[in-house]
Write a protein that binds this DNA or RNA. Sequence first.
DNA 1: CTGAAAGCGCTAACAA
DNA 2: TTGTTAGCGCTTTCAG
Lengths: 332, 332
Amino acid sequence: MTIKDVANKAKVSTATVSRVINNKTEGLTEEMRQHVQKVIDEMGYTPSHLARGMVTKKTYTIGLVIQDICNPFFPKMVSGVENVAYENGYMVLLCNTDEDLKREKDYISILREKRVDGIIITVSNGKNKAYISNLIAGDIPFVFLDEIAEDVNCICVDNTLGAYQATKHLIELGHEHIACLSGPDTSITNQDRVMGYKKALVESGLSIHEELILKGSYKADSGYRNTEKIIKDFQHVTAIFCANDFNALGAYEAAVAHGKKVPEDISIVGFDDILDIPANQFAFTSVSQPTYAMGQAAATMLIDIISNKELKESVITFEPMLIPRDSTASPK
Amino acid sequence: MTIKDVANKAKVSTATVSRVINNKTEGLTEEMRQHVQKVIDEMGYTPSHLARGMVTKKTYTIGLVIQDICNPFFPKMVSGVENVAYENGYMVLLCNTDEDLKREKDYISILREKRVDGIIITVSNGKNKAYISNLIAGDIPFVFLDEIAEDVNCICVDNTLGAYQATKHLIELGHEHIACLSGPDTSITNQDRVMGYKKALVESGLSIHEELILKGSYKADSGYRNTEKIIKDFQHVTAIFCANDFNALGAYEAAVAHGKKVPEDISIVGFDDILDIPANQFAFTSVSQPTYAMGQAAATMLIDIISNKELKESVITFEPMLIPRDSTASPK
DNA sequence: CTGAAAGCGCTAACAA
DNA sequence: TTGTTAGCGCTTTCAG
């Protein structure tokens, strides 16, 4: 059933039907509108977004490229994006990349074919210049969420501050030998967290020991291995700042496996605050991010760009918040 | 940039370009294909899915209507759907309803406008005949995920069996007075769980006390209130079967608030297994569902329907699995 | 205020 | 093997 069928049945032109389904107020009598609307309702006609998109060059669809929806860090972000999109008449195409760069590129190319109005991307390779410039050249509006990069619109959290808060917390508890489990070095987010860790040390008059900053990924096994190393090689370490909660989890498991108690023998701070659930009797100290608000902000910014609104700022930085819980305490 | 531009530059017809971008093997020399492909690459041409969809009547897009992505029960399902979709060349439009029926209907109508090839729906109103028949009348293929309904294709778990396992577990621990916190009565899923609860009681020679089956919703506050009632009015009850984990959580909190210890004073079994996280020192006994596989199955079934494949079965039922943990024990 | 008609970018008969 | 051309269902100028 097409607009033509409706036009025929209502004995009007397709232009008139088009005016009605698009709520054009001008150039249309109220009688006409009601007459046509009635026919539309009777026939159960649904206009085709495809055909409309072809002529208007707008799809009211945005792509959301996300690393892993099963990672508890993301659902709230997705929800924030989705809500703002819905309220503004947009729909979101979900692109789960499983952290596979090939799949991510593939998705972006498909999104381009689908002529989405814009893309929100949460990646962890803000340092990949080629990737970024290719995106920019794609002439489709996009905003980065979570990760930041040069010359692109971003929604992020102040990672340096968060890491600073976490490390400061350990220092205030009395720790002097604090290790740092860092994430992937392709990520500016991670780089900033390491920076915040260092900043807190320096500011407190503690010296930075590069060997206590262990390189790794954002996965639990990286945290596990690095913590084993710390337990073996650096026995004076009493606290660990982890670049994210998966690392913290791995650290916890390694500590337990090696007979260390948390927090009595070793304190652990995570980042992202994804390990907290109600009724939990042991919870991790972590740096929490306002993920829902960040998702909302990303969608709002993208839609503003799409609508050619003047952007007040091209980077919106949210404040993280340290939440002290059960995995940190003063050293014995 | 359109197919026409490519055709001009390559000095061929649009039909030829179309053949190349659609990988038509027949009626095309390899030289021609390479020549055209080269021009396409040089120009950075991306075909429009919109235009293609208009003529082929296929969008390679499916809608996924989900209640709440932030509920830990769903992300794995979403991921299962998304993965199968991706592998088959489909994309998924995420529709989060926040359990708002109006929003759900709105989304379904938009999906229709978008001419998606099919829809996967996870709702909790399988008893709403009008809703279902409206869906069927919509002539767009759909499958229900999680919830079941008459005359529709569904992917579900054997809820009766799961509830049976859970209740049986309590009985085997020695409990004789077992309450049941049920969910919304619009849901067949919930109805089946209550049935499984009853079945286990009867089979073990215990009698069913209707007053111990409390009506509620799938939310924590419902579990909280109902548990308070049990603690006050039915002091002989030593165990509670909850229709889902949010109820179990509410039950746990109510128990603690009233000075009862779990599981010493009262055992609690949940359903869905969403409260378990690693490094957790207290975890709920719950009935686990293979949500990832269910998501995969839903996408596979939908794509089969879209592709006009013969469906082996219109309802696929997965087996749930009881996971005994820390919230259940023998009564004192 | 309403209608006629061109055209959005592509595919698929049908012709050549 | 390649090209011509008629749509797909809509919006939007431009006439009337």
